[in-house]
Write a protein that binds this DNA or RNA. Structure first.
Length: 746
DNA sequence: ATGGACAATGTTTTT
DNA sequence: CATTGTCCAT
């Protein structure tokens, strides 16, 4: 295959660039993955660089797998030895190799956020601090932030009492990690950065080895990641980074798009290449995206253009509430599918927060339409999965007390809290990990540890210790699947988890799914399997093969593309999220999030918001997203919302109403008969609309107590109320209900 | 030790 | 409202 095929001028100059530092500013859909993969292929295939001397890092396994696949398409076996993976996985691999420099052993486990919280709770307990006053969640965020900024506990800034508290928790938390021979996500980056920073000979070794370092989604790197990249590229200075500051949406995770500026300062010789031509979306979609993002300050403006043509206008739909939003989505999908305008797999529904997926899922279920949900939590967060994984982790690393605590009494084997505490105390006095004590008790009849316990607890502990001793003897040689089967079998886990209910059957099926995954690791072994399980991302759970609509958060959508995209919940408080109201920088990130969502769409884009939203329990009126008013009306095609006529509908009622039929028929995209075979649709008569009673016809001037003077652009009756689009001189376009806004006619 | 019943309490985004 | 924690009876 031609290594330089299908490239435009800018892409080609990036792929063929002379060695050195290079910054590729890549707009959405501008072919950055293509540039990265062809750059790698070019270096190996045409420049003759050994794959062994190339390092490429991404943020998700999916991105890494995709790149690997494409590199192989070009090079086949010639690419063997290439280091290509996520930041976290790559660091984990190197750290295991260089474990002698670390405070943990090479078989360390990687704790996920659940485990991390458990450990923070333990730290609070140890320090006699109240969990209510010091929320583990927020402490975790503080600790994580510190780690991302490469601050160790002793370097943690302590300006006030609370900081000192956090510092102590951080200190203790770190001690606990070490005691468990565990690292958290942040440690992987932190340890790697420190390793390179503090050991010149190690730094030299890797910096010399990696002649070329390539980075995807560079705008999402945090301080730790930037530091380790800088060190890795310190010898050859061939650092090829691709990114787009406008798509930086992980600030809360420590990502700092100013790393782009830092890069330019640290590598002043760096060439900059701008990729503006978009190969994904229609011009209408790009224009909408640019209108939204252009309101952000301090950015390098990109002019996105396409040769795909204008395309159709952006669908704008105002729903009555979030259930209505979901119904609109489902019905539109059903309708377009029915007309063969799209296939189910061409659709994605995006939202700000995971909680929004519920209503959508319900709507799909009711319509009898399949869907898939992107989210690691869905599988790896499940109890049964965590149980089994904890067993395996414990067997891999007996010092993992978090996993021991999780499984010691699952299934119930008469080892309760009291016994556990006694075991823990005894073990810590003996200078051993609790599981090590157990193994000894199980193994040796004469074990002195046995004398420390009595009665029921002794028997229970010895029994469990016996099991542990057997398994951990096998852990080193047996492939993950066989080890897992032993555990499942000897704990009678099936009987425990599958209680005969639907849920139980479901849970057991999940275990079987995990078995299937374990089977793939027969050659690579337990450590690799556990690492894979720890480092899956939400996106990685996306199965591109299933041809059904995808439900996902805007964050998870980054890097993906779909023909038809719905963005739902475009209301102030949701997008932008209410937590972002105080800080301008956070508000800018919300805007970028919407920008990312919009630019995922190839052909059709629907923006959906609602009048009411149930946050928890009951519904409240909400404002449309402030970002919506930044999109010029000319780009929009408002889809009339017949469904929201006069009715606070109750749950379960009117669900299958297909008011949309009338709705969509008027819209440009849908027409004709849209009854779909699989979905029930008892047509229910819609409540007669209230007779028009307009107080503020279009053109009238009004005064609002907060927003000041404005002009009514549009007025229509809805749910017995008058809905007005008003252009206020001070705040721009607002949509209000006449009954709620204290409007005054002028 | 275990499981059930009730109360309180809480919601961004994720490697 | 929906999950999670806490208390209490078995």
């Amino acid at each position: 295959m031609d290594l330089l095929a299908n490239l435009n001028t800018q892409q080609r100059s990036a792929v063929q660039a002379e060695p050195g530092a290079l910054l590729v500013l890549a707009g959405p859909g501008s072919g950055k993955t293509r540039v990265l993969t062809q750059r790698i292929a070019y270096l190996i295939g045409m420049v003759g660089v050994s794959p062994y001397r190339i390092l490429a890092v991404t943020f998700t396994n999916k991105a890494a797998d995709e790149m690997m696949r494409r590199v192989q398409d070009f090079l086949g076996d010639q690419g063997r030895g290439l280091t290509l993976g996520t930041f976290h996985a790559t660091c984990a691999k190197i750290l295991r190799r260089e474990a002698e420099y670390l405070p943990v052993d090479a078989n360390f486990v990687i704790y996920d956020s659940d485990d991390q919280l458990t450990l923070i709770r333990r730290a609070l307990e140890d320090l006699n601090l109240d969990e209510k006053k010091n929320r583990p969640q927020s402490l975790h965020a503080q600790i994580s932030k510190a780690k991302n900024e490469l601050l160790r506990p002793d370097q943690y800034p302590t300006n006030d009492f609370r900081d000192r508290m956090a510092q102590r928790v951080y200190q203790r938390y770190q001690e606990l990690l070490l005691a468990n021979n565990a690292v958290d996500f942040d440690d992987l980056l932190l340890y790697m950065a420190n390793l390179l920073e503090e050991n010149p000979q190690v730094r030299e070794q890797y910096a010399r080895r990696f002649e070329h370092v390539l980075v995807d989604e560079f705008q999402d790197t945090n301080m730790a990641q930037y530091t380790l990249l800088r060190h890795l590229a310190s010898y050859h200075r061939n650092l090829f980074v691709v990114g787009d500051a406008d798509q930086s949406i992980y600030r809360w995770r420590g990502a700092d798009y100013r790393n782009v500026q830092r890069f330019q300062k640290d590598f002043p010789e760096a060439k900059v290449i701008l990729l503006e031509q978009n190969y994904r979306s229609t011009q209408a979609i790009l224009d909408t995206a640019m209108q939204v993002i252009d309101r952000n300050p301090d950015r390098i403006r990109k002019n996105l253009f396409t040769e795909r043509g204008a395309g159709q206008r952006i669908g704008l739909y105002e729903a009555y509430d979030d259930r209505d939003e979901a119904a609109f989505v489902v019905n539109t999908i059903a309708s377009l599918t029915k007309q063969n305008l799209a296939r189910p797999g061409d659709f994605a529904v995006m939202y700000r927060i995971n909680a929004q997926s519920r209503v959508l899922e319900e709507a799909f279920l009711h319509a009898g339409l399949p869907y898939k949900l992107v989210g690691a939590q869905r599988f790896y967060g499940r109890r049964e999965i965590k149980d089994i994984v904890s067993y395996l982790r414990l067997l891999h690393n007996l010092r993992d007390e978090v996993s021991l605590t999780r499984v010691i009494n699952v299934p119930a084997r008469k080892i309760g809290d009291k016994t556990l505490v006694a075991l823990r105390t005894y073990a810590s006095n003996a200078g051993l990990a609790p599981a090590e004590v157990l193994v000894e008790m199980g193994q040796e009849r004469q074990s002195p540890h046995r004398t420390a316990f009595s009665g029921q607890s002794l028997g229970a502990l010895v029994n469990f210790g016996y099991l542990l001793a057997n398994w951990s003897g096998l852990a080193a040689h047996l492939p993950p699947l066989q080890l897992m089967d032993r555990v499942l079998d000897e704990t009678d886990y099936h009987a425990y988890i599958d209680d005969g209910t639907d849920e139980g059957r479901d849970r057991w099926e999940n275990v079987m799914e995990l078995r299937r995954l374990a089977a793939e690791y027969a050659d690579q072994g337990l450590a690799a399997f556990l690492e894979r399980v720890s480092l899956v991302s939400d996106q990685d759970t996306l199965d591109a093969s299933a041809s059904v609509p995808t439900l996902l958060t805007l964050h998870a959508a980054k890097g993906l593309e779909f023909s038809n995209v719905f963005i739902v919940g475009l209301n102030d408080g949701v997008l932008p999220h209410s937590r972002s109201f105080d800080e301008p920088e956070e508000m800018h990130e919300e805007r970028r999030l919407l920008y990312v969502g919009i630019t995922r769409a190839r052909d059709r884009l629907y923006l959906v918001y609602s009048q009411n939203r149930s946050q928890y329990g009951y519904a409240e009126p909400v404002e449309p997203s402030r970002f919506l008013s930044d999109v010029p009306e000319g780009l929009l095609q408002t889809i009339p919302s017949a469904a929201s006529q006069a009715r606070p509908r109750r749950r379960r009622e009117n669900w299958d109403d297909d008011d949309w039929d009338r709705t969509s028929r008027k819209s440009s995209s849908a027409a004709g008969d849209r009854s779909y075979a699989s979905a029930p649709r008892p047509a229910k008569p819609v409540t007669t609309p209230a007779p028009p009673d307009r107080q503020f016809p279009a053109g009238s001037k009004v005064n609002h107590p907060v927003w000041g003077e404005g002009m009514v652009l549009n007025s229509r009756m809805d749910a017995g109320d008058e809905l007005l689009d008003i252009y206020f001189q001070q705040v721009g376009l607002k949509r209000v209900a006449a009954s709620l806004a204290r409007l005054e006619k002028m």
